[in-house]
């Protein structure tokens, strides 16, 4: 049997159909259920094809659900491609964007902004987001500098070690900040649990730009990531510029993670589990694995978000909590079912 290493057109169409289907489902279901026909009517009315039948449905969909669900889908895709890239680059199935310490760095920046009550609106986002992006990037630079000082060749183990230590350091700073800022504790806690409840179109725009730019850059390195996953020495032997590839992939992953954390807080597990599931289905070749992870990540997070807002409606559960809950159970099941396949 001959295996195709790239996504075939059929697979692209099937996966896109899946994502669009789930998107429509998420639009229709919620604290107010909207019939598919009405949803379709609202979508058409946006393009001026039909007249909107109901102001209420229009307002719910256009102002709340569409930006939220689009953000959720984009976020899922972004976290998953980051995870897939990191797992290949670091040859470590436990790696994801957060292993680097970048998520922790981004959280730290955002929480600083919340605690000190900085609040200015910028063109692409508010202070929390800008701070998260700046600190995400700064932490990456710090981590890489330390790793580089320790180890000229930037060995993956060194990067992971420094990343984990940095996460702990940032975590303790966050706890310290929380201790001194009782009044903001609710905002901080809800933010750290991860949520996209208040997402608007500026979030959609930021996520789209970040995802398009970064995923393009990461996908271009699919061959290099395959070589890394096979072995760093082997990658060097066949002509991969090992240090450059590491730097480029790490930088784009951390930008993407920075934007994701800035918008939604920490949403765990997606970046870890989705690439695993995709690998079990599509194999380890990154040319296929990374697009597949993006589709599955979007689908998974949209469904999870659906559950988090409908399960105890009108009470909303934080998205990050549900991803970890569902993710861990699903993961253990799948891992158990296919121990030999890996």
């Amino acid at each position: 049997m001959r295996k195709k290493t790239n996504f075939t057109l059929t697979e692209y169409i099937l996966c896109s159909a899946l994502v669009i289907g789930i998107f429509l489902l998420c639009l229709c279901v919620g604290s107010v259920n909207i019939p598919l026909k009405e949803t379709w009517n609202v979508i058409l009315s946006v393009f001026g094809i039909e007249e909107a039948n109901s102001r209420v449905y229009y307002s719910i969909l256009i102002n709340v659900r569409i930006p939220r669900i689009m953000s959720v889908g984009l976020e899922g895709a972004a976290l998953s491609i980051c995870g897939a890239g990191m797992q290949g680059l670091l040859r470590n199935p436990l790696a994801d964007g957060s292993t680097l310490g970048v998520s922790a760095g981004a959280s730290l920046g955002a929480i600083i902004a919340i605690v000190f009550g900085w609040n200015f609106d910028f063109f692409i986002g508010d202070t929390t987001m800008i701070m998260a992006m700046i600190t995400a990037y700064a932490s990456l630079m710090l981590i890489l500098t330390i790793a580089y000082k320790l180890d000229y060749s930037l060995a993956t183990n060194t990067i992971i070690l420094v990343g984990v230590i940095f996460s702990m350091f940032a975590g303790s700073l966050i706890s310290l900040l929380i201790t001194f800022a009782h009044d903001k504790i609710n905002t901080i806690i809800f933010w750290t649990m991860g949520s996209l409840a208040g997402a608007d179109y500026s979030d959609v725009l930021s996520l789209t730009i970040a995802l398009v730019v970064c995923s393009f850059a990461i996908l271009r390195h699919a061959d290099e990531l395959n070589a890394f996953a096979i072995g760093e020495d082997n990658a060097r032997n066949i002509g991969v510029d090992v240090r450059r590839t590491k730097l480029v992939v790490l930088i784009f992953v951390s930008i993407l993670i920075g934007v994701c954390v800035a918008i939604a807080g920490t949403i765990g597990f997606v970046g870890l589990v989705i690439p695993h599931i995709s690998r079990m289905i599509f194999g380890p070749n990154h040319k296929k694995l990374m697009p597949a992870s993006m589709f599955f990540g979007a689908t998974f997070l949209m469904l999870t978000d659906l559950i988090s807002r409908t399960l105890f409606s009108p009470l909303e559960l934080p998205l990050g909590v549900i991803t970890s809950l569902i993710g861990s159970v699903v993961f253990v099941y799948i891992f158990y079912k296919s121990r030999e396949v890996r």
Binding site: A229, N234, G283, R342
Partner: peptide, 28 residues
């Protein structure tokens, strides 16, 4: 890499790549 190739003594592949995947990467 176009001039010189290296064969190491041991290999520790992390994921289930196929034999063909690995051979093809030689053309990188």
């Amino acid at each position: 890499a176009k001039i010189m190739g290296v064969l190491n003594q041991s290999h520790n592949v992390a994921y289930s790549f196929t034999v063909e995947d690995i051979v093809k990467l030689g053309r990188y």
